[in-house]
Design a protein around this nucleic acid. Structure first.
Length: 564
RNA sequence: GUCCCGGUAGUUCAAUGGAUAGAAUAGAAGCCUUCUAAGCUUUAGAUCGAAGUUCGAUUCUUCGCCGGGACACCA
């Protein structure tokens, strides 16, 4: 909608002699107009003072003196030409129920995310990953990409070996826990892994035993198959539970066990072609040839590392989907790793060139201070959600809702997801157990509250679906209402920007501003008490606001509630 | 040691090289017989340091200082 308005104004500016690309910004104050054109670039071209140029442009607008339906007036503020939109025209455009079609980009993108490892805890980092991946998928789909949701899960390697070692030590407990609940079995796996990991660090003998187990995993040794398959299935069952809980699904699950053999084969094949080298008994990719660093692809024991597996995974993904792009949503500590792996992949699979991309997200780190006693302990993803849910149920104690638990669950997921998404993807999040997942202010619940408030009003409007769609807005519209109209109008532009920069925080920030503008409106402009056209207008305005809010939240992977 | 990323109110985050650096939270003061107070209004508070480029720098360059990460057999 905003682009319709901006294009109108750009046309007018072209008519008065402004050439080239025109950027329109928003003035810092409401009383300075709704859109602004800075004359810096044009002044430079003409070798004039931008203040003079601005005056000249305004004069040309005055000389034309014809009616510009969309504009009330044009004013100059220093080097800026500012435009005051006609609010009736604005309302007409914004509340026009015509749906715009999203044009297909004719591009297929694989978004690979979540990728937890079996036998290991699902911690808050995974939660941020899955939240980020899910929103990227939705944003890219929204702007017209075909998206394949992929999840690459690690089910072979040293971490499994450590876990199996731990299970062996806790054999009795393992037998007991077999028939217990999923959460108990998962808790046991977490304990076994921690036990194995610790012993591995501190005991040379254990280290050897774990390495031997690793060998057995890669060789699919029969002696470990039963326990391996059983516990692997537990993990996968648990991941499934988490995916459902946070509202994600996947089109394709890849497993390391699926690609390690072919990965090793590819590396050996290209070893002969000189792409890889032997060094100290291992096979490495000489990244230093390309200004990167050398990395081991196959260990001196003959096992493929993550790097080698990626060679086969890449090939598999291109064979199966022929994507135009593959996005790997992975933590920022892997930046150097991906540079090398993409370069190596390019050598073994030329069509992957420039199509692989690492989408970086930051750490969820623990804030120092009060909670330092907990440092070192893994913070589980579900633990976080459950803690937030307790808080929310507490807040809801005086509410009488038949589906209270369901509502509290949705609000909790919203709180957690929004707290991850409101800040830039690559930024670290300082996680504080008390403050981080806020339920007031700039938070998920605040946004859901807007939707609930609007729905509540609409429910009370008896002729809900019958209120007049008005076409002439011949009544005064306040600045607060205008501000809300302008904010609503920005949505499609913001979504596009989020897609281009792959930055969901743009949407989160926008929705928060929208919420603030709505709350101002709410306190100032009664809807149900208003009469006639004004009432219809306000109903229509809040309904549109609700639609934009719900859509925006959907793009963030957040579900709304009717009441809260 | 080399390379990468970051440093903005007490705290957590914003700001295509442009108008008076915005929010949230914590603090202070108000607002519920009126569409959900998970809200609204008012108030106080910040660009790590030094040079440089520019009409103009939180933003770009260089150098410091501080923090985080990567750098060969883990995933």
């Amino acid at each position: 909608m905003m682009n319709i308005i901006k294009n109108e104004i750009k046309k007018l500016l072209h008519d008065v002699g402004v050439e080239g690309e025109i950027e329109l910004s928003t003035p810092p104050q409401v009383d300075m107009g709704d859109l602004a054109f800075g004359c810096f670039g044009m002044a430079k071209k003409l070798g004039k003072n931008p203040v003079e140029v601005a005056k000249e442009i305004k004069q040309k607008f005055e000389i034309r003196n014809s009616k510009f339906e969309i504009l009330d007036r044009v004013e100059v503020f220093g080097p800026y030409v500012n435009f005051y939109l006609n609010v009736q025209e604005l309302a007409k455009i914004v509340l026009d129920s015509k749906k715009y079609k999203v044009e297909s980009k004719n591009k297929r993108v694989i978004v690979e995310f979540a990728h937890p490892n079996t036998h290991k805890a699902f911690h808050i980092g995974h939660l941020r990953n899955i939240t980020t991946g899910e929103t990227l998928v939705r944003i890219l789909e929204h702007v017209g990409y075909e998206v394949i949701r992929a999840n690459y899960q690690g089910d072979v390697g040293m971490h499994i070996a450590k876990s199996l070692w731990g299970i062996e030590q806790l054999k009795d407990e393992y037998e007991q826990v077999k028939n217990k609940s999923l959460h108990e079995r998962i808790a046991f796996l977490g304990k076994a892994y921690a036990h194995g990991g610790q012993a591995y660090e501190n005991d040379k003998k254990v280290e050897e035993e774990v390495k031997d187990l690793n060998k057995k995993i890669y060789e699919r040794d029969v002696s470990i198959q039963d326990v391996y398959k059983t516990t692997r299935a537990w993990s996968l069952e648990y991941f499934d539970h988490i995916y459902k809980r946070v509202g994600s699904r996947f089109d394709r699950f890849y497993f390391e066990s699926e690609v390690y053999e072919s990965g090793k084969k590819i590396v050996h094949e290209f070893l002969e072609k000189g792409v890889f080298e032997e060094s100290q008994g291992a096979i490495i990719f000489p990244g230093s040839r390309y200004g990167l660093h050398d990395r081991v692809f196959i260990t001196s024991q003959g096992f493929p590392g993550y790097e080698a597996k990626e060679m086969a995974l890449g090939r598999l993904q291109f064979d199966e989907y022929h994507p135009d792009e593959i996005l790997h949503v992975v933590g920022k500590e892997q930046t150097g790793y991906f540079q090398v792996v993409f370069k190596a992949l390019e050598q073994t699979l030329p069509e992957s060139k420039d199509k692989e991309q690492h989408v970086i997200y930051g750490w969820v780190r623990l804030k120092e201070g009060k909670m330092s006693a907990r440092t070192g302990k893994v913070v589980l993803g579900e633990w976080l959600i459950d803690e937030v849910k307790k808080q929310i149920l507490d807040m809801m104690s005086d509410r009488e809702l038949s589906n209270k638990d369901e509502v509290a669950e949705k609000i909790s997921i919203a709180a957690v997801k929004y707290s991850f998404l409101k800040t830039g993807v690559a930024n670290d999040i300082a996680f504080d157990f008390e403050e981080s997942v806020s339920t007031t202010g700039d938070s998920g619940p605040y946004l859901l509250y807007i939707v609930a408030r609007i729905k509540s009003i609409l429910r009370k409007q008896e002729t809900r679906n019958n209120f007049q769609i008005i076409s002439n807005f011949q009544f005064p519209i306040s600045n607060i209402e205008k501000k809300l109209l302008l904010q609503v109008a920005r949505f499609s532009e913001v979504a596009l920007q989020a897609a281009e920069n792959m930055d969901p925080s743009k949407i989160a920030q926008y929705l928060f501003s929208l919420a603030q503008d709505f709350n101002n409106f709410y306190h100032d402009c009664p809807v149900l008490q208003a009469d006639g056209d004004v009432k219809s207008f306000r109903l229509s305005l809040i309904q549109t606001t609700e639609q934009v809010m719900t859509k925006g939240l959907y793009l963030l992977g957040i579900e709304t509630v009717e009441e809260m």
